[in-house]
Design a protein around this nucleic acid. Sequence first.
DNA 1: TAGATTGTTAATCGATTAACAATC
DNA 2: TAGATTGTTAATCGATTAACAATC
Lengths: 221, 221
Amino acid sequence: MNSRAFKVDKLPSIKRLPAYLHLLHNLASDGEEYVSSNYLAEKMQLQPILVRKDLELTRVSGTPRIGYCISDLIKGIKDFLGWDESVDAFLVGAGCAGSFILGNRDLMGVGLKILAAFDKDPRKIGRKIHGVPVFDWPRLRELVSRTRVDIVILCVPPDEAQKVSDKLVAYGIKGIWNFTPTNLVVPEDVVVQKEDLASGLAVLSVKLNQSHSALKEGTFP
Amino acid sequence: MNSRAFKVDKLPSIKRLPAYLHLLHNLASDGEEYVSSNYLAEKMQLQPILVRKDLELTRVSGTPRIGYCISDLIKGIKDFLGWDESVDAFLVGAGCAGSFILGNRDLMGVGLKILAAFDKDPRKIGRKIHGVPVFDWPRLRELVSRTRVDIVILCVPPDEAQKVSDKLVAYGIKGIWNFTPTNLVVPEDVVVQKEDLASGLAVLSVKLNQSHSALKEGTFP
DNA sequence: TAGATTGTTAATCGATTAACAATC
DNA sequence: TAGATTGTTAATCGATTAACAATC
């Protein structure tokens, strides 16, 4: 049971790495050379010790009194994530979700390069969205086999998601970034990362409710 | 330190609630009345016992041999999240991120109702995006005070995020759903939920790398 | 009744935090 | 040197899992 899901160590730390990367890029473009765990912790609202633990993943070591070398950290994080070279991906379904990703891919710190988008809508085919060409669905098979891309960003309507996923798997795709609310069933050598916006909203809702009632009860500072 | 961040209990469970809700809605529309923790666990790739623990949050109790009453669970989850009535929100910045949310809001299981969007782009103002009217930025202040909305979905460019956030706070907004990569600084009675797409990509990247090397080394089943 | 499923209590596991030594 | 910051080791905390009793 669940042996099929890749057990990855230190998932919470891994999830924080891109945020560190973003801060580090900002610092680097400000001309800074070193950064302390304290600084990163303050910006991200974490404990400094947690930051140091997280950065251990990169195998980069800091210098007491000085901090970590920013360019080393950037390299270290990218290296750890496999973002040293760009991550090539296709986008399937070029609706709102799709163009959201397309519009945000530079925010992801160079990690993501979307080579092509695929859609059924004839009005989109042949055009470009955010600089990425949109192809007709049938061309996906051919392009997958030609280009060695192994991530697909899945942004189709929920009721088509499983069907499309099955095809992607048949074409040899090994990683699916799933933006649909559908729980996909895939073979064990395929990795699915499901993105669920609603869970963020759930957290926000609960926190707001709690802060409201804390206010009412006067337990709030 | 960090006393300012609302400490919320059982965050992982809370994050899973919307996914249960989605499954339950599907089941309900198929005419099902009861569901077992086993079924939900299988769909979401979790252990059944974890599902039962999660559902404890709702205070709904199941019946041995039969399972949980689906409509009770739906009500229980919505109630716990404060989604029994719709969550009213404004969208600030109607770019790609914005229209992504607008396009996906029905997927969130009724939780979210976006009353209005605000943008600086004169071409968008006065039009509707996914049925939501787009207003000029200056009208935000007035509408916030008139409508009792307390969530804003923040989708502006990263370098404007802090400035806009300051204004929102000044207008009395208590919850910000932050889709920018900027680490916002806000007073302690304001809740910020930051959404970071890149962290999902990080997890996917690491899992893919691991599965590749497992394949090479033959450690993969 | 027998068997399936929930719910409770305890055990384990992993993430975060604390304490402090090492080092520049 | 003194002091700031990293890095190590142990402690704590919370989430998940296991075992099993309760119950329909």
